[in-house]
């Protein structure tokens, strides 16, 4: 299947593709508004992002990210793109793994997050092989076939047209390269789902209020997770973009899933 065919097929399958509305949490907003609304959320939480991640997930987000790095198969000399890399958790490790002969590009649409990430990585002494790019995942500003590995951790659900982002990633991946998307998903068990709902809609916003003085952003977080495609739907979107050997692994009972696809 050619790139063009993949993208055409993908746009047909994208939810809301024919309408001018899209979801922002549980609200329906104009597509043109979503990016700025999401930007407001992340401008608000950027300074406390790492602390809140640790609090909200009880530190488990670090293990999910570690598993993603294990599955990335990054080697010395690889070129890695970390989209929506936020505060640079994945980039820091990739930077050491690719070594001086490789490079890591930390891309994020949000300048506040990018600045926090850049400062954090520089404080760790990681300066030589990392580029910082403010970029929209739907229109990545890189040449075709540029990267060996692309990762996106907890970023895809904030993208307005997710299928466009997957198509764009497919374009910039080298043949033989792989994409890993770590994202909240649908819990596999009904009981876990109920507990998870109670936690995310009642406790999470209150934690956001206490720690970051911002309950609305964390309410959006919980809502956006529910609106995100489930495991099988996202796998189908990978395949529509042209990825092959697509699979996913449920982590912590499906609260989070790691999707993986290859470009051949």
């Amino acid at each position: 299947m050619s790139d063009t065919d993949s993208r055409e097929q993908a746009s047909q399958r994208t939810p809301n593709a024919s309408t001018e509305q899209t979801d922002f949490g549980f609200q329906q907003v104009e597509k043109s508004q979503k990016a700025s609304l999401v930007a407001n959320v992340f401008d608000s939480v950027a300074a406390k992002y790492d602390v809140m991640n640790d609090l909200m997930s009880f530190g488990v987000h670090r293990l999910w990210k570690r598993y993603t790095i294990d599955c990335a198969g990054v080697r010395a000399g690889h070129k890695v793109l970390d989209i929506a890399g936020g505060t640079g958790d994945l980039t820091a490790k990739f930077s050491r793994l690719v070594g001086p002969t490789g490079s890591v590009t930390l891309a994020d649409i949000n300048l506040s997050m990018l600045k926090v990430g850049r400062d954090k990585l520089r404080d760790q002494g990681l300066v030589n092989n990392i580029d910082y790019v403010q970029a929209d995942a739907e229109a990545l500003p890189f040449p075709d076939n540029s990267f060996d590995v692309v990762t996106m951790a907890f970023g895809l659900r904030n993208v307005t047209e997710k299928q466009n982002a997957l198509n764009s990633i497919y374009r910039v991946l080298k043949p033989g390269g792989r994409l890993l998307v770590l994202e909240f998903s649908k819990p596999a068990s009904e009981h876990l789902s109920k507990i998870y709902d109670m936690y995310s809609f009642h406790i999470l916003p209150r934690m956001g209020q206490v720690v970051a003085n911002d309950a609305d952003s964390y309410r959006y977080l919980a809502e956006s997770i529910r609106m995100h495609p489930d495991q099988e739907t996202l796998k189908g979107m990978f395949e529509s973009a042209g990825f092959e050997q697509c699979d996913y692994t449920n982590l912590t009972g499906g609260i989070v899933a790691l999707h993986r696809g290859y470009k051949f």
Partner: peptide, 10 residues
């Protein structure tokens, strides 16, 4: 998975 990741992290 998190158990194995917890082991390597520790």
């Amino acid at each position: 998975m998190p158990a194995s990741s917890l082991f390597t992290a520790s």
